[in-house]
């Protein structure tokens, strides 16, 4: 007997599911509305900005032409890219190196070191900015790329995240490599790191986004407009000649492109179970 012979029975939907979907839908709308308005405003002319219709009456790409032909924007874009890329690479390397050591080596004070690193997570950036600034100015780091980057080159969060993942790497892998004659650094680099690519991808996304959107510290440590990062630069549109919302929104829309690319590139590595294939148990 074929299934089509029977009358289709409507699938029963649990009331809980309806509530959950409604909440998710409302949440989704709330999340996406500002983005939609950003794109919408970037396509409006200056006079139309306060017309809150989502679809612009006279859509124009003029704002994009203006922003992109403005040399400063490209400079800020490159500054942000450079800083976000370097800090991300640095975090991936150093955070996971520290994390691996804490996860896989037994040495006195290991837990204490880990706790000390974790405890720095409890301190808000706002509290750290003043010491950072004093340090930067006494060392001549203000208005330099290094000055903008140095607080983010290693993060306690990254160490914490990576340590949790390295803990799940079976010791057998590392011991097998040790017997095969690899040194500890090579074991980390050739064996342990490939096994935690999902975590590395997640950390890469977090770090890149964090540095790409960083505003407070770059604002404080730079006075040279050529060294501004994109968020700092965009905000300067707001202060100098009245607020040019359409320009800010266009710059912001453009600034989402690298974050989208980063996410699309790394998300395919966030696949659990890569590690399960080589070990049974």
């Amino acid at each position: 007997m074929s299934r089509s012979a029977t009358a289709p029975v409507p699938r029963s939907i649990r009331p809980g599911a309806i509530i959950a979907w409604t909440c998710l839908f409302v949440g989704g709308v709330i999340m996406i509305t500002p983005l939609l308005f950003m794109f919408s405003t970037s396509l409006k002319s200056a006079g139309e900005v306060f017309d809150l219709r989502l679809v612009p009456a006279n859509p124009t790409l003029q704002n994009y032409v203006r922003v992109l032909s403005d040399g400063r924007f490209l400079g800020w874009f490159l500054n942000s890219t450079l800083i976000a890329v370097i800090t991300t690479v640095s975090c991936l390397f150093f955070d996971s190196l520290v994390a691996y050591t804490l996860a896989k080596f037994r040495f006195p004070g290991r837990k204490l070191v880990f706790l000390a690193i974790l405890s720095t997570l409890m301190i808000p950036t706002e509290m750290l900015v003043i010491p950072w600034y004093l340090m930067s100015s006494s060392l001549g780091w203000t208005d330099t790329y290094w000055g903008i980057m140095f607080p983010g080159l290693m993060t306690a969060f990254g160490v914490f995240l990576m340590r949790q993942f390295f803990e799940t790497v079976p010791d057998d892998f590392l011991e097998a490599a040790r017997i095969d004659g690899l040194n500890e650094f090579t074991i980390w680099w050739r064996i342990a790191m490939p096994l935690v690519t999902p975590a590395l991808s997640a950390l890469a996304i977090f770090t890149f986004l964090g540095n790409w959107t960083a505003f407070f510290w770059p604002l404080i440590v730079t006075t040279d407009r050529d060294l501004y990062t994109l968020p700092v630069g965009l905000s300067s549109f707001a202060v100098e000649q009245s607020i040019q919302w359409e320009m800010i929104m266009t710059g912001a829309a453009l600034s989402t492109i690298p974050t989208l690319l980063i996410f699309l590139f790394f998300q395919r590595y966030i696949v659990r179970g890569v590690m399960l294939a080589g070990v049974k148990g």
Partner: peptide, 20 residues
């Protein structure tokens, strides 16, 4: 001596072959 200097090979319970 370090494991590598002993020139022995070991097969582990969990195989420990590298998935990547």
């Amino acid at each position: 001596m370090e494991p590598k200097q002993r020139n022995i090979a070991m097969v582990f319970q969990n195989y420990a072959i590298y998935p990547h």
